[in-house]
């Protein structure tokens, strides 16, 4: 029954990430909301790869072959890639937020409306 809550956490993480994206006005907080959603998706992948009382898929000094049960390796390889991509997106968005602040002296979305001579 406890594994049921794994999926609840995934859905709640993604849900609160999306809610923050709609209501938050500060640029940095939007980056944090994005990280929450990425964490939710990573957890979803790991939940797919779980096997009851399976060990990590590493054979060095693993228990005897008989009762060896291993967790699936592919989602963990993808999460490795997704974490680094999440880091990349966050690093770039924080850089752009710093530059926006340096040019416009505000981080609030409402004040950062589109170009002045817009339509």
């Amino acid at each position: 029954m406890t594994d049921f809550f794994l999926y609840v956490t995934v859905v709640l993480l993604i849900f609160f990430g999306m809610v923050a994206l709609i209501y938050k006005r500060n640029l940095i907080k939007i980056v944090i909301a994005l990280n929450i959603i990425e964490a939710g998706i990573n957890l979803l992948f790991i939940a797919l790869a779980y096997r009851p009382n399976g060990t990590a898929p590493i054979f060095t000094l693993a228990p005897a072959l008989g009762e060896l049960k291993m967790v699936l390796p592919t989602p963990q390889a993808l999460i490795l890639t997704n974490i680094v991509i999440g880091f990349g997106t966050t690093a770039l968005m924080l850089t752009l937020a710093i530059l926006t602040y340096q040019n416009n002296h505000t981080l609030d979305i409402r004040k950062l409306r589109g170009v002045e001579n817009n339509d």
Binding site: A56, P57, I58, F59, T60, M70, P73, T74, Q76, A77, L78, L80, T81, V84, I85, F87, G88, A91, L92
Partner: peptide, 27 residues
Amino acid sequence: SNNLVASVVFDYRAFDTLGEATVLFIV
């Protein structure tokens, strides 16, 4: 390799890892 995750990352899906190293290089 004993570490199956490393075998997936660096051999079976090495093209993903190449793409992902490019992502870090771009950042």
